[in-house]
Design a protein around this nucleic acid. Structure first.
Length: 779
DNA sequence: CTAGGGTTAG
């Protein structure tokens, strides 16, 4: 056998490292006199090796603490860093990996295969592609690459570092393939989300004479889990049984995960119960399955059971348990788990620590969240900060969210796509165009502007801040294949009173061959309903089902009812509901009641009201609407009856809602913070203002039963009230809180309010979480 | 000695 080392050394030498003799090399080793041998049979002449290192462009220093630092070492002193791979002194090179020195001199070899595998593993875990490449070169030069294990490690390194091209090239060049190498390649495909490629390579195993082993099946099952490919998963399960790999715990665990990710919890559970050996991973997998299916109590019960089974929960298990507590909003049990992880010394790790921050901030315990974040100190990742910020946003404390974001920036913690996404949501809910612009400029400086989610959040934020032009500008810079951004832009037009543009964009999207999703259709349908394009809407709805095979959801049905109802086709809307393939829900009925109110059909309104109350007996809107309709047609006794049905208590059941009576009619108020002590004062003031308005000869909009109210701690008592009499503008107070999609409100804005007022920062357009009571829209 | 299974934030 020809000596590969010699060959490689000679050829690569001249190709890779052109003569640099004229360049002064600070690392020039004068007395390299170690007894060098290579892995190959023939020893490498020491002179050659000496020259090799002599001519290497630069030496590499890698920090084991900072995975992103792979730099050339430009001076001897820096080369002797503790965590660096190379240190240099006058006549010897030491190589360090994980702080264990491997001296060429002592091993007597240029590159030891065990050492090389260790380095490559390090490169895989730390994603150091550049260092991996350099080692690849050294490996070729020294001839270690003929070793199967080294080859496999190289494939794995390239695959894990995201360079699938090199991984594939290596596999093709390998003289003989074994199952481990193939597993590395498949695993690489999976890690890089190339699931189809993973599957087709797996299918080629047989033709290549490779018998899949239990590792292969765990990888392939992970593919099925990611794709929710239950049919393929079941076939793999059958093969696993046949090949008797089920006794492998990892295979069993992967199966449990596959079934639970495919929504088959019963199968997952019975499989879990039948496992011969259950380890902490098995328990974590099944517990996580129940968590994902929102059976949090069962998840937590299983944590107790695993302890009884003698298996201690680890960081993974605790993360799942803590996040279950957050989801089930059980602070007491959450604190209990927090105490346990504290005792075990796991509370400050990235995952567990972040989950604790997330739990507290999600449950509105911002103080505890902040304390945890502080205690985590340097180990707090951007995820930890994101959780802290997201807590504020979810609890409708946008200003605090922005303050926390500023803190995060101050601590030099890198913002990621999640950070931008969540902070843009905060801008949307303020809404503050100025803040939005500031965040945008930060994003341009970072690389996240091109991220799909961040980009669509930006479009959404500009939309909510009332600047469709900015949204358009962002949209025009996006890659055209980005469905989410198309959806956001269509929604932006639809919500900002430009339904025609929304529909034109939808058309363009279809023409460009981008497949609309169910949210695309929702935005387009809503545009139709706001512009009175009944036929167009109906065609869209049919096409959604027929051409795109999208199953309509409650929101689509609700939107269709709205489409027909707004256009005054009350009977058609009723027929539509009666012919639905599902049992109509309250959100589907509600827009029809609003339509009855608009088109003065009391008889149908009474019928619809009955349907809604059967489904949702606490819906105060129904009483308000009916009562006001009775008043308008002069049936005061009926109005009285309804009024009696609607006690203050009923209304109080609705979060954030209160009501007052005026001229026999009822107006409902939505407040930002019901527990706020100033609220009664706000109501009193509001009553006074309304009386003032009426005394000046204005009346409140006959069709507007809902008045929105907002309270902000910072601005002391301030409130908003919108009201108009056919075309006559009265006043708009600060901090208006109203569903932006409400028909009358949007018409009002587009016809009366000048743009500059709409864009001012202290206006708040709020989306009702459960749909606008007036128009029934859901966003 | 190489490959595999379970965790957080929109």
């Amino acid at each position: 056998m020809a000596s590969p080392s010699k060959l490689c050394l000679n050829t690569s030498f001249s190709i890779s490292f052109p003569s640099t003799s004229s360049v002064k090399d600070p690392f020039k080793l004068k007395n390299f006199s170690l007894p060098l041998t290579s892995m190959a049979s023939e020893p490498i002449p020491s002179k050659v090796v000496c020259t090799l290192f002599d001519r290497s462009p630069k030496r590499i220093s890698v920090s084991t603490t900072d995975p992103n630092f792979t730099g050339y070492v430009n001076d001897v002193e820096k080369g002797v860093v503790k965590n660096g791979f190379f240190t240099s002194n006058d006549d010897c090179i030491d190589v360090y990996t994980n702080n264990v020195p491997v001296t060429f001199g002592s091993s007597g070899r240029l590159l030891d295969r065990r050492f090389v595998i260790g380095v490559l593993k390090f490169c895989s875990n730390e994603r150091c592609l550049e260092l991996g490449r350099r080692y690849h070169a050294l490996i070729i030069k020294s001839g270690v690459n003929v070793d199967q294990f080294v080859g496999t490690s190289l494939v794995d390194m390239y695959a894990k570092c995201g360079d699938m091209g090199s991984a594939i090239r290596l596999v093709i060049q390998m003289p003989c393939l074994d199952v481990a190498t193939c597993n590395c390649l498949i695993s690489g495909y999976v890690k890089n989300r190339l699931f189809d490629e993973a599957f087709s390579f797996f299918m080629k195993f047989d033709g290549m004479g490779i018998r899949p082993n239990h590792y292969t099946y765990t990888i392939m099952l992970a593919v099925c889990s990611s794709l929710s490919a239950i049919d393929e998963g079941k076939q793999l399960h059958a093969q696993i049984v046949k090949m008797q790999y089920l006794s492998e715990t990892a295979v069993g665990n992967a199966l449990v995960t596959m079934y639970s990710k495919c929504g088959m919890m019963e199968d997952a559970e019975s499989l879990f119960n039948s496992l011969v050996k259950r380890n902490v991973v098995s328990w974590s997998a099944i517990i996580n399955g129940f968590k994902h299916h929102r059976d949090f109590e069962k998840a937590l019960r299983l944590v107790c059971l695993m302890r009884e089974d003698g298996i201690d929960p680890n960081e993974y298990t605790f993360s799942i348990a803590l996040s279950s507590c957050a989801s089930m909003k059980n602070l007491d049990i959450g604190r209990m788990f927090h105490a346990q992880v504290l005792k075990k010394g796991m509370a400050l790790g990235d995952f567990v620590g972040t989950t604790i921050v997330d739990m507290y901030s999600g449950l509105g315990e911002a103080g505890d969240a902040e304390k945890q974040l502080k205690e985590m100190g340097k180990s707090a990742s951007s995820a930890s900060w994101n959780a802290h910020i997201a807590g504020f946003v979810h609890n409708e404390k946008a200003e605090e969210a922005i303050e926390a974001f500023v803190d995060m920036v101050k601590t030099d913690k890198a913002c990621d796509e999640f950070t931008y996404s969540i902070i843009l949501k905060a801008c949307s809910s303020l809404p503050s165009l100025a803040t939005c612009e500031q965040i945008h400029s930060r994003m341009i400086k970072s690389k996240f502007e091109s991220n799909m989610h961040v980009g669509s959040s930006l479009i959404e934020a500009y939309n909510k801040c009332g600047s469709v032009e900015d949204a358009e500008r962002v949209f025009s810079q996006k890659s055209s294949a980005d469905v989410v951004s198309w959806n956001s832009m269509i929604k932006a037009y639809s919500q900002n009173g430009q339904p025609t543009k929304a529909l034109a964009l939808f058309q363009k999207m279809v023409e460009e061959g981008i497949r609309p999703t169910n949210s695309t259709f929702l935005a387009a349908l809503s545009a139709c309903s706001h512009s009175g394009l009944v036929q167009e809407g109906q065609k869209l709805f049919e096409s959604m089902v027929r051409d795109y095979n999208i199953l309509p959801e409650e929101t689509h049905y609700s939107c269709m009812v709205d489409l027909l109802g707004r256009a005054g086709q009350l009977e058609n809307a009723l027929d539509f509901i009666k012919n639905l393939p599902i049992k109509p829900t309250a959100p589907i009925w509600r827009p029809l009641l609003a339509a009855c109110r608009c088109h003065n059909n009391l008889q149908m309104a009474e019928f619809i009201a009955k349907q809604i109350l059967e489904l949702d007996p606490n819906d105060a809107t129904v009483y308000v609407t009916l009562s006001n309709m009775y008043i308008e047609v002069g049936q005061c006794t009926d109005a009285e009856k309804k009024r009696k049905l609607m006690t203050v208590k009923d209304v109080a059941k609705e979060p954030g809602c209160s009501w007052i009576e005026m001229n026999n009619k009822i107006y409902r108020f939505f407040s930002h913070d019901k527990s706020c002590p100033e609220m009664p004062i706000v109501y009193q003031k509001l009553k006074q203002v309304m009386k003032q308005i009426e005394s000046k000869g204005y009346t409140l909009n006959a069709k507007e039963d809902n008045v929105a109210l907002y309270h902000s701690e910072k601005l002391a008592v301030c409130f908003g009230l919108i009201s108009l009499t056919a075309g006559k503008r009265i006043r708009v107070f600060k901090n208006l809180r109203v569903c932006p999609d409400c028909h009358s409100f949007m018409n009002y804005l587009s016809t009366i309010v000048d743009k500059e007022i709409v864009l001012r920062d202290n206006y708040r357009f709020h989306h009702f979480k459960q749909g606008c009571c007036s128009c029934g829209d859901f966003w």
